[in-house]
Design a protein around this nucleic acid. Sequence first.
DNA 1: CCTTTCTGGAAACAGGTGTAGCCAGATGGG
DNA 2: CCCATCTGGCTACACCTGTTTCCAGAAAGG
Lengths: 212, 212
Amino acid sequence: MSPRPYGGVTADRRRADRRTALLEAALDLLATEGVRGTSLRAVCARAGLNPRYFYENYTDLDALLTEVYDRIVTETADAAAQGVAAAGPGADLRTTVRSATLAALDMGRADPRKARVMLIEASASPVLRARQREARRRYTRLVIDYARTFYDVPPDADAQLHFTATMLVAGWSENLIAWLDGELQTTPSALADMFAGAAEALADHAARPEPR
Amino acid sequence: MSPRPYGGVTADRRRADRRTALLEAALDLLATEGVRGTSLRAVCARAGLNPRYFYENYTDLDALLTEVYDRIVTETADAAAQGVAAAGPGADLRTTVRSATLAALDMGRADPRKARVMLIEASASPVLRARQREARRRYTRLVIDYARTFYDVPPDADAQLHFTATMLVAGWSENLIAWLDGELQTTPSALADMFAGAAEALADHAARPEPR
DNA sequence: CCTTTCTGGAAACAGGTGTAGCCAGATGGG
DNA sequence: CCCATCTGGCTACACCTGTTTCCAGAAAGG
C-alpha cells in the first residue's frame, strides 16, 4: 500500500514479518496447546501482535491453520521425493521406500512440532481434518502410481491396490505416532527397514496374479 | 431417592430413560454434527430434556461422550470376538480374521453412526482421542497376542511384532473409513478377504526368521 | 381438595470466542 | 518543527459455551 519504511524496514517487509510471526506462533501453539488452545487471541499474543494485524494477513483463523498445515505437508512431500531421488532411478522398491521414509523422518526429527501437528493435532479441527484426508488421498495415489512402476498390476485389481496403498499410508502414520510417543522403541533406521519390508511384503502379496 | 411413580413409571426408570435418551441424542449429534456441534445444550434439546437432567446423570459433557464411545468400542470388540468364536478353534489365521472382520463390519453396517463416531469423530475431542488411542492400543495388543498363537515369534522381535500389529489395526481403520465414504468400492465380503490376505501376508513376512 | 413432588421452559451468570473500533504515542517525510 | 502515518494496547460488541437457579404448571398421594 504505502511504500514508506518504518523502523528501518519497508511496509511490505513488515507485513511479511508479521505473517511469518503468526505462522510460527500458530505452529507452536498447535503443537503445545492443541487446536482447542490455539485461538485467534492466543496466536496474536504469542506472536506479539494485535488482532488487527491478523486480519491484515488472513481472513479467518482457519486460513492461518490451513497454511500452517499445508506448509508442513508440502515440506514432507518434498523431503520424501528428495529421498526417492537420492535412492537413484534404478533402485528396487525396498531401498527406495527406505530412503524416502528416512528422509521424511529426518524432517520430522528436525522439528517435532511439525510431526505432531501433521499427524495428531490436525484431526481435531474440522477444516484441518478435511485437509488431512485430502493429503492422505494424495499420498495414497502417489503410492499407487509408484507401485505401478514396480509391478505389472492387472487392470481389475484397482480395489486391491487402493486397499494396500491405504494400509501402507495409514500404517506408516500410526507407527510414526507410536514411535514419537515412545511406544515403539527402535532406531530411525530400523523403523525405515520395518516399513520398507512391510511395503515389499504387501506389494508382493497384492501383485500376486491369483490370490486364491 | 423417592420411590413415588410419575406418569405411571417409577423414578429410577425415568432416570434410566433420560440417561438412554441422552446417550442416543449424543450419538446422533456426534455422527451428524460432529464433536463441535454436540454441545451440552444441543444434546439436551435433541433428547427433549432440560440441562438440569443432564447433571442428574453425568458430571460433565465429556463423561457422556466417553460413555457413548466406550459402548461402541465394547460392542465392536464383542462382535469381533463372536466372529472369532464362529470361525472355530482350529481355523487358520485367514478364515479367523475374515470371520472377525465380517462380524465387526455387520455391526457397523447396522448402525453407521457408530462406525462414524468410533472411527472419525472421536479424534476431534481431546478426551475421546485419548480414549481412542487407548482402544487402539488394546486392539493392537489383542492382535499381538493372537499372532503368537499362530506363529512362533522369536523373543527379540517385539518391535517388529508391534509395528506389524499397529499397521494392521491402523490400515483396517483407514480402509474402513474409505469404504464407508465410498472411496473404496467393494462388497463387505471382498473387503474382509482383502484384509485377511493382507494380515496373512504381513504376518508371514514378520514371522520370517531372518528378514534380511 | 390440598399439599408435595416432579416436569419442562426460561433466564441469569461467568467465562471464552471472533470481530471491530478507538486512542495515545512512536516514527517517519517534508 | 509539523503533520501524516504506523504502532500497540485497550475496550466494546455480539455470540456461544457450561452451569445454576427460578418458576408456573402437571401429576400423584392423602
